[in-house]
């Protein structure tokens, strides 16, 4: 029996990475990660809120912790974490500023989503994803926790859950 080596190599080249990816995802914990940006001053931005009004600059938010959430309506994990973010923003009131940054989405879609799902804090329009690129956003949702001095204290990738939100807010200087 003759073996066609080219077919074997091509087949393995397609299949092996797939199998490796799937194996690595069996029984993973999606919430453990680090980021090179943590501990540095957050990149500045000036962005227009979706519902009009004055542009928001990062500098103007100094003085209390900021939760900067990159999200989109087409992203299922964003949908999952949305209620938690809204209720946290409502219950924490003035102690923390929550800011959404819209990632690769149409304004109309976002308006519809917020009308349906509720909104408690401004969502900013990020033309050309420039701010997302500056923060090194890889995919959505990603959430940055910025302390009162404007330094990135923590980063969360994937949908937030209550314990990580609390822990990371504490890292950003929120007293319990």
């Amino acid at each position: 029996m003759k073996l066609n080596a080219r077919v074997l190599v091509a087949g393995l080249a397609v299949v092996a990475p797939l199998v490796v990816v799937l194996v690595m995802n069996l029984g993973r914990d999606p919430h453990v990660i680090g980021s090179p940006l943590v501990g540095r001053v957050a990149p500045g931005f000036t962005l227009r809120p979706l519902d009009g009004g004055e542009p928001v600059t990062l500098a103007s938010l100094r003085g209390r912790p900021v939760v900067l959430n990159f999200w989109a309506t087409w992203c299922v994990p964003c949908f999952q974490e949305h209620p938690l973010l809204v209720s946290a923003a409502r219950s924490l009131g003035d102690r923390v500023r929550f800011i959404g940054v819209i990632y690769e989405d149409s304004e109309e879609q976002v308006r519809g989503f917020l009308a349906r799902q509720g909104a408690a804090y401004p969502s900013l329009v990020d033309p050309g994803s420039r701010t997302a690129i500056a923060f090194g956003v890889f995919g959505v949702p990603e959430t940055y926790f910025i302390d009162a001095e404007g330094k990135i204290a923590a980063k969360h990738i994937g949908p937030l859950d209550e314990p990580s939100l609390e822990a990371k807010l504490r890292q950003a200087g929120l007293s319990p």
């Binding site: 990816v21 690595m24 995802n25 993973r28 914990d29 999606p30 919430h31 453990v32 990660i33 989109a72 087409w74 992203c75 299922v76 994990p77 964003c78 890889f138 995919g139 959505v140 949702p141 990603e142 990738i157 994937g158 949908p159």
Partner: peptide
């Protein structure tokens, strides 16, 4: 997700 522990779309 596997390489960086990141969940994303």
């Amino acid at each position: 997700e596997a390489l960086r522990g990141v969940q994303m779309s």
